[in-house]
């Protein structure tokens, strides 16, 4: 059976114990400041004073660095190259690569954008790694997010790996009946059509049964829902959130004022 789709790493750390909403706000703050604060070196500095310390504080530095080096950095690097070469700004050409001019401005521009993306993806990664999805959803539901909404999010995360497993079963079954899965791309794409029927139709039947099952367990009850886990929201968290919101507003205001 496949693992469920979740990035959460269970640890006992200061970050893990923050209220999920606080972490969500913190994530958004980092991203918005990286993108709006009107000082060139903002995203670079954020990596040093926020992203790395937070990963240490959350006791996930090792896992985070692996992800950062393997996935986030290459993606940001690619973005950097694309923008450095194809961004037609500036006149101060540093070097020529065939017909492509690389200017001082385009380099600077690309560097900042790559760092912004790095901050954004890193912040989200840290958020996902330190927050249990069902805690996040219980907390948001308690704050008034419709129960159906959080159900859709969580069940998609859970059921997706099951659907992938099932499609593999169907592929194996069809292959044993002669389905071509190894020749050219277009041939394969065409021969996958028989897979769609069982997968979609099977899923529809399942959706109906699952709807009955959760309905039988009072899912559409008009009662105010309660929650098994208590998710603490101490005054420290509430204060921290206000400070973060203030920082966001400040950053955006400065951005508008200076432009």
């Amino acid at each position: 059976m496949h693992e469920r789709l979740s990035f959460h790493i269970k640890r006992d750390s200061f970050i893990h114990n923050l209220n999920p909403l606080t972490k969500l706000v913190l994530t958004l703050t980092l991203i918005l400041i990286a993108f709006t604060f009107p000082w060139y070196w903002t995203p670079h500095l954020l990596v040093l004073v926020a992203i790395i310390p937070l990963s240490l504080l959350g006791k996930v530095f090792r896992e985070f660095s692996v992800t950062a080096l393997r996935l986030i950095l290459p993606a940001a690097g690619f973005l950097f190259l694309m923008q450095a070469f194809f961004q037609p700004v500036g006149s101060d050409v540093i070097f020529k690569f065939y017909f492509l001019d690389v200017t001082q401005e385009s380099l600077m521009f690309a560097f900042r954008n790559a760092m912004r993306v790095f901050v954004m993806v890193s912040a989200f990664t840290l958020f996902l790694v330190t927050t249990h999805p069902s805690e996040l959803m219980s907390d948001l539901t308690r704050r008034g997010l419709p129960g159906q909404f959080s159900y859709v999010i969580i069940s998609t995360l859970q059921i997706l790996p099951q659907i992938i497993a099932k499609s593999q079963t169907i592929i194996a079954a069809q292959r044993s009946r002669g389905l071509d899965t190894e020749s050219s791309f277009f041939k394969r794409a065409g021969s996958l059509i028989p897979l769609v029927g069982p997968l979609v139709f099977g899923s529809l039947m399942e959706v109906e049964e699952r709807a009955i099952a959760i309905e039988a367990r009072g899912f559409t009850s008009k009662q105010t829902k309660t929650s098994l886990h208590e998710i603490p929201d101490p005054s420290f968290d509430q204060m921290l959130r206000w400070v973060l919101v203030a920082l966001i507003i400040l950053s955006i205001a400065l951005n508008l004022w200076l432009s």
């Binding site: 069902s134 959080s150 159900y151 969580i154 069940s155 859970q158 059921i159 099952a213 367990r217």
Partner: peptide, 10 residues
Amino acid sequence: PFNQISGAKY
């Protein structure tokens, strides 16, 4: 039983 698992819980 598979379809009776809510999918919302871990």
